[in-house]
Design a protein around this nucleic acid. Structure first.
Lengths: 235, 235
DNA sequence: CGTTGTCACGAACACTGTTCTAGTAGCGAA
DNA sequence: TTCGCTACTAGAACAGTGTTCGTGACAACG
């Protein structure tokens, strides 16, 4: 009875939205960028289209699949320059710095990358580029494959950890460098006040333990991984 | 009226359980070991004691705190031998291999370790041991601090990733080495069938891309990190 | 015009972490 | 022994979560 003809439904034609897989990824990524991956729920995404969560399941089989699609979409943003095998190590470092920055641009998407096997089309493009460059640089193929795996894992996990840090800082206070200094100071004080008999090195070197920016630490590890490949080059 | 005196409550004295923080951690870890971290919910843990979730909040302020406590409990299982600075790199590698194995013993607890700042008492013990060994080995303190950070991050993330792999294998079929071979074969086939014009290296080197056990790959990256510290040794 | 198949959508299910409320058990003091 | 207080158990409820089912309405095709 509620669908009585003299009170027609309020123009459902216009309210019925046309959903689309790409648009869904767009919206999900926008939410993730602004509020983090945890804010991406099926209800939240669907609400952006003015509908319920079940509407999404016609275009995306799963929430996991949606997250994977988001990750591969971001992988498409990776810029791949022409390969220069003569300076392959520098080029790989440059690409990884860019990828690291890209992941951080998209908030804590690194967490998704961690749990995802990077076999989407865009991720494969980047893998192909890196593997090719390493082989052309003189690395045996299987070591190139391993290095590709290890380096990308490292970049991903650092992006994730950095995003956690940033989230905690944001949760604290607004001024960025301000709160970073403060948290660092608190950490140093915590270490310095440890009982010196049981923690002589940590308490004495509290300044060293908190030294350096997260970017410096990231590059330190990245250099260890990439430079260490040198001795495996054949020929 | 249901509490009528001629039908006394069925001996509530014995049914009322004495909760305890340590016991809660015990039970949570047991669940995590058997079914994974995702299976650890406040209701699930409380149910093991025959009560409701709210009962836990008197002993644990948070689920996050419970997870942190679980992680530090596991860190207490790390065996720290006497330091031998003369062979500090080997010793650090040995400790990291053990820690990696320990994390995998506890299923996907590596995920918790990733999101946790390791400042629990047991984690601090291990950090003190490692920092001390590196400094005694000749590494400047701030580089030792960075290396400690990077290496532990690497060990943790590999344990996490390996646990994901294992979970997927377990979800597939029961025979362990059997399904591992099968999944590896499927992955190799997938890579080999990629269009050779756009993915020449990936398609040609599909065998190399899937070569090696996860343990071999882990040690490969670990060696890169640890051996690379050599050139930073002063004196 | 009629039919068919795709897909939007509301409702519901079984969960989750957390909080509020009440009430009770145990224990020290009088 | 009895009173009162503190500490802690525990049920109910709230606002979320991912996912599935059934019902439709719409559009394109025969």
């Amino acid at each position: 009875m509620k669908n009585s003809p003299w009170q027609p439904l309020p123009d459902r034609k216009s309210t019925r939205v046309q959903l689309d897989r790409e648009q869904i990824i767009d919206v999900a990524l926008r939410i993730s960028d602004q509020e983090g991956v945890d804010a991406v729920s099926m209800r939240r995404v669907a609400a952006e289209f003015g509908t319920g969560p079940s509407s999404l399941y016609a275009h995306v089989s799963n929430k996991d699949e949606l997250l994977r699609l988001m990750f591969d979409r971001v992988c498409g943003e990776i810029q791949l320059p022409p390969r220069e095998p003569a300076r392959w190590q520098q080029q790989i470092k440059e690409l990884m710095l860019g990828t690291h920055r890209l992941l951080l641009t998209h908030n804590d998407l690194g967490r998704v990358a961690l749990a995802t096997v990077p076999n989407g089309p865009n991720a494969l493009r980047a893998s192909e580029w890196m593997l090719g460059l390493m082989v052309e640089g003189g690395l045996p193929a299987h070591l190139g494959a391993w290095a590709l795996d290890r380096i990308f894992l490292y970049v991903t996990v650092d992006a994730y950890e950095t995003s956690i840090w940033r989230a905690q800082l944001r949760h604290l206070g607004l001024p960025k460098h301000e709160s970073e200094k403060q948290v660092k100071g608190e950490m140093a004080a915590f270490l310095a006040e440890l009982p010196a008999d049981r923690f002589p090195y940590l308490s004495r070197n509290s300044a060293a333990m908190t030294s350096g920016t997260s970017q410096e630490r990231f590059e330190f590890g990245l250099d260890l991984l990439i430079d260490g490949l040198q001795r495996h080059v054949t020929g």
